[in-house]
Amino acid sequence: MNVIANVFPESYKILCRFHILKNVKAKCKMLVDSTEALDVLMEAWENVMDCADQSLFLDYVNGLQCASSAWSLFFEYMNQTWIIPCSTYFVKVWTDKVMHLGNTTTNRDEFAHWA
């Protein structure tokens, strides 16, 4: 990401939502021992990623924090790794401000399948 900023200083970076979700799910499986809780946490995380209104973004983050209250390490990881440093690169409210033609993943097969 640092190289992109140097080589293409005017470009907007979008991170691959498919790979972020895959990474988050793997981390969640390591830290959460309940499959029901895993589903709830993944739904709360997808709400954060799909947030289309900046005024609701913190509400969705707070919802994720409440859902993960029993697993504080999971929320700390999410907050420190994804929400604070990178949310403007993958959350819908910010990525929809640039033209990406609906392509939010670097994996062409996954994008074509989803579309």
Rank of each mutant, 00 (worst) to 15 (best):
W45P: 04
D109E: 14
E36M: 07
V93R: 03
P85V: 09
N47G: 08
C86G: 05
M1Q: 11
N107S: 01
Y12D: 11
V91A: 11
V7K: 10
S87L: 07
T35C: 09
C51T: 06
Y89V: 04
R17H: 04
T95Y: 01
V40W: 00
L31M: 13
L56W: 05
S69C: 09
E46L: 12
V93F: 11
I4M: 12
L58P: 05
D109A: 14
W114A: 14
Y60L: 05
M30A: 04
Y60W: 05
M1E: 10
A52V: 03
M42C: 02
N103H: 12
A52W: 04
M1D: 10
D109W: 14
S72Y: 06
V7M: 10
S34F: 02
C51P: 05
A26R: 10
F75W: 07
E46A: 08
V61D: 00
F75E: 06
C16A: 01
Y60A: 00
T105S: 15
L21E: 11
W94A: 11
F8H: 11
N62H: 11
R108T: 15
L21M: 13
I14F: 08
V91D: 00
V61M: 03
N62R: 14
G63A: 10
T81M: 01
N107Y: 10
G63E: 05
K13G: 04
W114N: 12
S55L: 01
A70W: 02
F75Q: 01
A52R: 10
N47S: 13
L21S: 15
F8M: 14
N103T: 10
D96P: 06
N2Y: 12
D96Y: 00
D59K: 14
C51R: 00
Y89Q: 12
L38N: 08
L15F: 07
M30G: 02
F57T: 03
R17A: 04
Y77P: 08
S55P: 01
L38M: 13
K29S: 11
T105L: 04
R17M: 04
Y89R: 12
T35F: 13
E76K: 10
S69Q: 13
Y60N: 08
D59V: 14
V24A: 01
S55I: 08
Y89C: 13
F18K: 00
K13M: 14
F57C: 09
W94V: 07
D39C: 07
R17D: 02
V7R: 12
V61S: 01
I84P: 00
G63S: 10
V98H: 07
S34E: 03
W114D: 10
F74G: 06
D96K: 12
F74M: 02
C28R: 04
D109L: 15
C51S: 07
T105W: 08
W45G: 02
E10K: 14
D53K: 10
F90E: 04
E36N: 05
L56D: 14
K29V: 09
F8D: 11
S34T: 01
A115H: 14
E10Q: 13
I84C: 11
D59C: 09
A5V: 03
